[in-house]
Design a protein around this nucleic acid. Structure first.
Length: 385
RNA sequence: GCAGACGUAGCCUAGCGGUUAAGGCCCCAGAUUGUGGUUCUGGUUAUCGUGGGUUCGAAUCCCAUCGUCUGCCCCA
């Protein structure tokens, strides 16, 4: 057999060079989550297809063309999770966490699967790290959770980040706005791009972040603004959140064109974007929002909820190169036949907390042993004799 | 799903119709080095992504296919 050339399309191998970065990020994130009393949940990598179909919305692109869906041997329709929230909500309900003290605060990390064209910062198997909260309707918890993401990025010394906020309104106000957008698009059908003509039917709000400059100009100047359609409740909710950002000096911008790809969002939505060119057009590294209707949609009681997810691969590519500092403290060599003695030293050093490697080759040539140690970049090379 | 660019050893690159496909890094072996990345010598590794076609002759031209990248769609 020929040497394999690539892993399957849209996937990648995480090599030791980079896994260190992942571990570092994971450690920092876990620390932040733990301190804010969020607890980890691990849910299956696949779920019944229906879970995702209902959560993301039957008409969404994710459901219609991006899911890895298959029948298992008993004919059940199974789907590899394309995002984390639906599975967490399902687990929340399956395990009766809706009866636990509110809010229930959870975090998760794991691979997600979407059948898409791969690009920089976009894979078919990718990893999301996310937070979910069930039971609180308050803007304060949104503020805290967004701060946690922001805080993580600051600790990682990632620069050039912007926080964009918007509200998509609650069910009622969004429906009215959606209708207004649809009418607006239909009135201007001849001027807008083919994609937007489609969006007029399928997802009118999506037109707002159309890439065509002429369309953008039209929407900016003439399209109805979501902020004008928010009812008092949504408006107050947003004001409290924005005031908290001001109070705690978190820079944000209100972006009225910001909408989400999944149907379940209500009220607050946000994205954290980078202007770093390393990610090309995939510049959103963290996004989320409120989804007060989802738990009920999946068969649970009316439950307020808020969450976000960040793309680990995207985040990692923004990190600076890690230092070349050696991770290996000792390399232990020994004369022929003296392994036992050498290994006692090894154990001893490891018990003291050092990272230690041994020369298994047991080369007779001392000089060569030394060179092996050098190649491993050991801080100290010692010989047991 | 659409559009464009690109696939030469583990990695980076040369060759762009004509003898046994070239170099650097890495790797392996040996020597050198009075002691932590020296220097030298030798060696392994490529059916030039894959499959067809054009041609006396293809890594080089054409087609298909797979993969990568950039943009669109969509999205973390």
């Amino acid at each position: 057999m020929q040497r394999p050339k690539n892993p399957p399309r849209g996937t990648y191998d995480l090599l030791p060079k980079d896994s260190e970065k992942w571990q570092m990020v994971e450690k920092l994130a876990k620390d932040i989550f733990q301190k804010a009393s969020f607890q980890e949940i691990r849910t299956p990598i696949f779920e019944a297809t229906e879970i995702f179909a209902r959560a993301a919305g039957e008409t969404s692109d994710i459901v219609n063309k991006e899911m890895y869906t298959f029948e298992d041997r008993s004919g059940r329709s199974i789907t590899l999770r394309p995002e984390g929230t639906a599975g967490v909500v399902r687990a929340f309900l399956s395990n009766g966490l809706d009866r636990a003290p509110k809010p229930v605060k959870l975090w998760y990390q794991g691979p997600m699967f979407r059948y898409e064209r791969s690009q920089t910062g976009r894979y078919r198997q990718f990893t999301q790290l996310g937070l979910e909260q069930f039971g609180s309707n308050s803007p304060e918890i949104e503020f805290e959770m967004i701060s946690m993401a922001w805080n993580l990025f600051q600790k990682l010394e990632i620069e050039n980040l912007t926080l964009e906020i918007n509200s998509v309104g609650d069910k009622e106000s969004r429906e009215i706005y959606q209708k207004a957008m649809k009418e607006f698009l239909n009135d201007n059908l001849s001027q807008i791009c083919p994609d937007c003509q489609k969006r007029a039917e399928t997802n009118p709000l999506r037109a707002l972040d159309c890439k065509v400059p002429e369309d953008q100009e039209l929407y900016q100047s003439k399209a109805p603004k979501i902020q004008d359609y928010l009812n008092e409740d949504c408006k107050n909710h947003q004001d409290i959140l924005l005031n908290l950002f001001k109070e705690f000096q978190m820079p944000y911008s209100l972006n009225q064109s910001l909408v989400r790809g999944l149907d379940y969002y209500t009220k607050t939505v946000f994205e954290i974007k980078t202007s770093d060119s390393k990610l090309g057009v995939q510049n959103t590294i963290c996004a989320g929002g409120r989804y007060d209707g989802l738990v009920k949609e999946l068969g649970g009681p009316e439950t307020s909820a808020f969450g976000w997810a960040l793309g680990m691969e995207r985040l990692i590519t923004l990190l600076n190169e890690n230092s070349n500092e050696s991770k290996l403290d000792y390399f232990v060599t020994y004369p022929v036949g003296k392994f036992n003695k050498a290994y006692k030293i090894v154990q001893d050093l490891r018990n003291q907390g050092y990272s230690v490697a041994v020369d298994y080759e047991n080369s007779k040539d001392e000089n060569k042993q030394f060179k092996i140690g050098q190649k491993l970049n050991a801080k100290e090379i010692i010989t047991a004799n």
